[in-house]
Write a protein that binds this DNA or RNA. Structure first.
Lengths: 220, 220, 220, 220
DNA sequence: AATGAATGAGAATTCATTCAT
DNA sequence: TATGAATGAATTCTCATTCAT
């Protein structure tokens, strides 16, 4: 009974919870539209609060950015879990991709965060790892059902989310669903009938900062 | 009198030309490595000149960025022209994409510039338009030879350059050629045997900032 | 009904008194350890109350600082009063100084407050004036008993408290009693056998902020 | 010939050198008057330059503070060196102290910097170490000539500089030479005729940050 | 009365751009 | 023309103080 039990102690927080929500929404929008370089003051303004309030909720800009990314990733993880129960694994994988790209389609910051090692926080990296694992679960089923090539991995799928989104991005302002075209193309490329071996082995992991050697030799 | 060949004025101009070249090279590197937020002072330092000299050659940072982008686009245009003479049009189209992605693979700034309407200068947009036209020429031949789907356009191909690059980007630090994998997947998706109609019509143009209506109705 | 002794209003007041005490203790510690720049939030936390409560008791940070200083000064005044009853006036004066420096030795803020005119509140200045008077009473007895030079005043003694403390301060972290060494040196300097006239007349008052002229001409 | 040889290369710097001097002067004043918390903008304004110019010359506020401290310490070191050649070592030691206190008398920041471990930069600490060594050289001669107690060290002398300054500080606004009075008292306390053993052993070093144990046992 | 969320003035610092030399 | 010093707007973040609950 989230709204019915307001004791005094909880009611004090009601404003704060509302502001936090406003902030996350405003920040999601602002990052999506303007990228990670959007000033905190802009986010505060969009949320209708003072600058100080942003910092009360998120002590640093990075914390806010991480929170936004985690929101996105958590939703994706939830979707992946849900789709594991679908009968048609190929369909489920496609739906997962569609959902993921749909989320990204509104988000300029994601590309920047994913691409920049300097912005990679442990929490976000871990969530991406988990996402790759879930995506691998979905992909494994699709492989077993013969819906996709044998050498496609969950990490491929996650990478393609960002890539397909990026492909359509220049069009999104005017045609917000244009990414569907490129998802279709990419998914056709993943299908099992494309039997020729891919010219480069599957990626192992997305961890960027690890100074260790690459996980497998370069394939000529 | 370095080479006995000129007046003082000419020598001065020669220095200037040399500095411009140094600057373009340094800026290309710096933008590629660090993205568009790299400070002008960093570029000046890499070029071995003073900050003022950068601004003499490029009155604003945007001008420099445009010059870099034009360089990149010019090279791509040249490649497209050259490949028009290849016999196998499907092969040629693939080579064009490989060359384009290879250029982008070393360039952090390109994704950022393409994605940000605020950074889109008329000159760059025009060059991208021209690139789409050349890509369309290559694509038309490939379509005619049955190498790719009937409803694939040059603009699709140009958009895919950025998208495929973005797909592989998180891997590029450790595996600089990982994009080849995703080019193969995408190109398989473009092939003619994928005959099902795409769920979204081909994009007409890439002009981002124009507030005019979209060129065709959204496809449900 | 904690002790069965009061109405709700009285209990509330009791809490308030308790909080005030907690706050003074916490603030004394915090100012002593960290200096005047310690944030109010730190003080609230140390006291185990919310920030708002600090401001209910002390409307501004300055008010709190003044309260702390008054505490310190009151203790010193009490010590001075007590020592007026000692038989050996020289000994008493020394004990007064030792007690004062001991208090300061644990207090980073005092030096900062004393040194900064901007922080000098009327109340604190008045207390310092009173302290100088009490110190003068002690000093007068010591002068009469031949324990210190004839031209030493109470104000000299009060100033020396801060000075001796400051002398030892860099050592206090590792050797909390190091000030005893410098008190001994200074007190030896005050003794009557040092009969040569001091090269500068005794200070009249400590009032710092008054823009009026100096109380006596500069001695060349 | 500092001013006579202005080549082009050096003339370019002429402004800069002048601004640096203005800045050091303004900062010395500002720190002396207001303490280390004076805003950089205040220093810029006093120097008549823009904020950015301060940061061009001193990349961080700490750098500026260190520069100011080093200026002061260098002057003191120079004085110590000069006074080593004086015949009367007691007189020389006193002159050293007078000179040091005179420098400090105009400087509020010194006390704060000396007292706050967090502000102790290696460079400053090293200079203070060197100053203690020079002071020890002067003190050793004075000890040998019987001018001061046998157990007074150079570190004592350096500590007394700050202490005597602090003693007089509240008076300095109105009576800039009041410190002479307290120097006389302190120096009388140092004299050899005060033969009673001091109640605390001499300090070994001023290094504050070292987490090692204290250099000698506490003397009761 | 207590709480702790919100406020907003201000601090250090960065960097594109201008301009004197 | 090249230089690099100066500028000042913008940005992140802090903290005393106010105020709704």
């Amino acid at each position: 009974m989230e709204a019915g039990d307001g004791t005094v102690a909880e009611r004090v927080r009601a404003d704060s919870v509302r502001n936090r929500r406003l902030l996350l929404r405003a920040a999601t929008e602002a990052f999506a539209e303007c990228g990670v370089d959007v000033p905190m003051s802009e986010i505060a303004q969009r949320a209708g609060v003072a600058k100080g309030t942003v910092f009360r909720h998120f002590p640093t800009k990075d914390d806010l950015l991480v929170a936004i990314m985690m929101q996105l990733l958590d939703r994706l993880l939830g979707t992946a879990d849900r789709l594991m129960r679908a009968a048609d694994a190929g369909h489920a994988l496609r739906d997962f991709m569609a959902h993921g790209i749909g989320l990204l389609a509104a988000d300029r910051a994601f590309c920047e965060v994913i691409g920049r090692p300097s912005l990679q926080h442990a929490e976000v990296r871990d969530a991406i790892d988990r996402l790759c694992e879930r995506a691998e679960d979905l992909t494994a089923r699709a492989r077993e059902q013969g819906a996709v090539r044998a050498d496609i991995t969950g990490t491929d799928v996650v990478l393609l989310l960002g890539g397909i989104h990026q492909t359509a991005q220049p069009l999104l302002d005017r045609e917000p669903r244009a990414w569907q075209r490129f998802l279709e193309i990419a998914f056709d490329g993943l299908r099992a009938r494309n039997s020729a071996v891919l010219p480069y082995p599957p990626p192992a992991r997305l961890r960027v900062a690890d100074p260790a050697g690459s996980p497998h030799a370069v394939h000529t």
